[in-house]
Each structure stands twice: as structure tokens, then as C-alpha cells.
């Protein structure tokens, strides 16, 4: 009987810190067995050997910030049967989307002496703003076990089991005392999607929202709770404007607290 060929996987990078790709290499125990299940067709950070498309599954890290990349992402989509975006840059524009709230000229000239050499777009945008995306895996960075779940699900042809409820659910399950209720610490957990394992409350600090908005976030209500704890509007503006500043619910709440 003929054996079916192994599915071909590709990993692509746009504007990002490489951390989500590294999550892949951080699956130390599973890495070599995964490499046996799939054929790695394109993953420049790990290998100089590339195989031609089409790819059965493409993982895309990073956001779109240059004119060239708006074209390159279309080519990646064309070569990919399934396309999954990984991380806050790819799903929301990343920390570099803070430019969306400023004048890009000011940003470029404050870093580079000769701004004319720098080609950049005014906005940092998620991949889904440019091409159809089959699944978005959240996180800054993504969680390695969630990544393995997504890859396994796509290889098996089922939907990934990635919860969209809030960090609070994970936090209760981890047995943490609520930092907001018991210690009055400002926490974004109630409006942030689970997935990280509620690390920050586990380390005695408030969640800072690196997995982006949960499925039905009530940000105005949380903002009122923060104000009652003594947070200023500027604190709220800053809190909603970090790694997922470009995600709709967080963007709206940050603007509601802008002067």
C-alpha cells in the first residue's frame, strides 16, 4: 500500500521579535517527534533547506509594516493550503502598532538620522487585514502547548481546541487568590483571553493583556473598577495600549481614555 506523504509545513516571519517561532523550538521534548510527523518545507530560522510550495500548513509570525510585505503575504497565502497566524504581532499588529496612534514621521526621525532610507508603512496591521486567515493563535508570545494543539488539529483536520474565555477562569483553576479583589492590584485578567496559564497573577502582579481581548470583554466595566482602585485615565490608556493595542476591544477602550 502506498504511504501518504508527510504534510509540508512552513514558518514565515514578518515584523516581529522571533519569539513565537522560538516557541516552536522550545517544544524541546516534542520537537524531534514532530519533525518526524511533518516535513519542514520552509523554516529559515531553523534550516537552510527549503522545499517548494504548496505548503499544507503555514504558520505566520509578525505584522505587516512595509510596502514589500503587503505583497509577500499574498504570495505566502497563495502557496498555503491552510494559514495560521501566531502571536500578537500577526493577530493584532503587535507593539509596533503603537505607531497607529502617532505620526509615523516622528517615529522614523527620532530613530534614524536619514529617514529617507527607511521604507515603512504608517500603520502596523495584522495578517488578516491583508489575506484570509484560517486560524489566529493569540499571545505575546504564544504558548508552546497551544501551538502543538493547533498543529495537531490542522494535521487531523479538526478545529483547534483553544479556549476564548478569560484569564480569570485559568487563574481560579490555578488556585491563585484574586490580585484585584484581595490586594487591589490593577489586572486586565477579566477582559483578556486565557492561554498563558494566568502567569502574572501567579507572580503577584496584574495581568497585562498579552493574549488580547477575550470573546466578550466588558472593558468599560473593568475600567470603572480600575478607577475605583485609584488608576488614572492615563494608566488605563497605557494598559490597553501595549502588545494588542490594535485589537478592536482594546483599541476602543484606550481611545475612550485618551485625552
Amino acid at each position: 500500500m502506498p504511504t501518504s506523504p508527510r504534510p509540508r509545513l512552513a514558518v514565515w516571519k514578518f515584523a516581529s521579535c522571533d519569539g513565537c517561532q522560538l516557541s516552536f523550538l522550545d517544544c524541546e521534548d516534542e520537537l524531534l517527534s514532530l519533525a518526524g510527523e511533518v516535513e519542514i518545507g520552509y523554516f529559515l530560522e531553523a534550516s537552510g533547506r527549503t522545499l517548494p510550495g504548496p505548503y499544507d500548513l503555514s504558520l505566520v509570525e509578525g505584522s505587516i509594516t512595509t510596502p514589500e510585505d503587503t505583497q509577500r503575504i499574498r504570495e505566502v497565502r497563495r502557496l498555503s493550503k491552510r494559514l495560521v497566524t501566531i502571536g500578537a504581532c500577526a493577530t493584532a499588529g503587535g507593539i509596533q502598532a503603537l505607531r497607529n496612534f502617532a505620526r509615523i514621521e516622528d517615529f522614523v526621525s527620532s530613530v534614524y538620522a536619514s529617514p529617507e532610507y527607511i521604507q515603512t508603512l504608517e500603520r502596523s496591521t495584522p495578517i488578516a487585514a491583508h489575506v484570509p486567515v484560517d486560524f489566529e493563535l493569540r499571545g505575546c508570545p504564544i504558548h508552546p502547548l497551544q501551538l502543538l494543539e493547533v498543529i495537531s488539529a490542522f494535521l487531523a483536520g479538526r478545529s483547534p481546541a483553544i479556549p476564548t474565555y478569560s484569564v480569570c477562569i485559568e487563574c481560579k483553576r490555578a488556585g491563585n487568590p484574586c490580585v484585584l479583589v484581595s490586594r487591589g492590584v490593577a489586572c486586565l485578567g477579566p477582559v483578556t483571553q486565557a492561554g498563558c496559564g494566568a502567569i502574572c497573577p501567579g507572580y503577584a502582579r496584574g495581568c497585562y493583556g498579552c493574549y488580547g481581548p477575550m470573546e466578550s470583554p466588558n472593558t468599560p466595566s473593568l475600567a470603572r473598577a480600575w478607577r475605583a482602585l485609584g488608576s488614572s485615565r492615563r494608566d488605563l490608556l497605557r494598559a490597553f495600549r501595549t502588545f494588542n493595542a490594535g485589537a478592536e476591544a482594546f483599541r476602543r477602550e484606550s481611545e475612550a481614555n485618551a485625552d
Binding site: T65, T66, D69, Q96, A102, F107, V108, T242
Partner: peptide, 21 residues
């Protein structure tokens, strides 16, 4: 590598946010 302008986006942030950013 597309520039991400960290030195610019840090301006106006609280010092306490810097290690995370």
C-alpha cells in the same frame, strides 16, 4: 528587517512598563 521604532514608542510610557516592552 522592518524597523519597529522601539526608542520612539517608549517615549511617554511609565518607567515601570519598560522591562515588559
Amino acid at each position: 528587517e522592518p524597523p519597529r521604532f522601539f526608542e520612539a514608542l517608549l517615549r511617554g510610557r511609565a518607567f515601570s512598563e519598560v522591562p515588559d516592552i
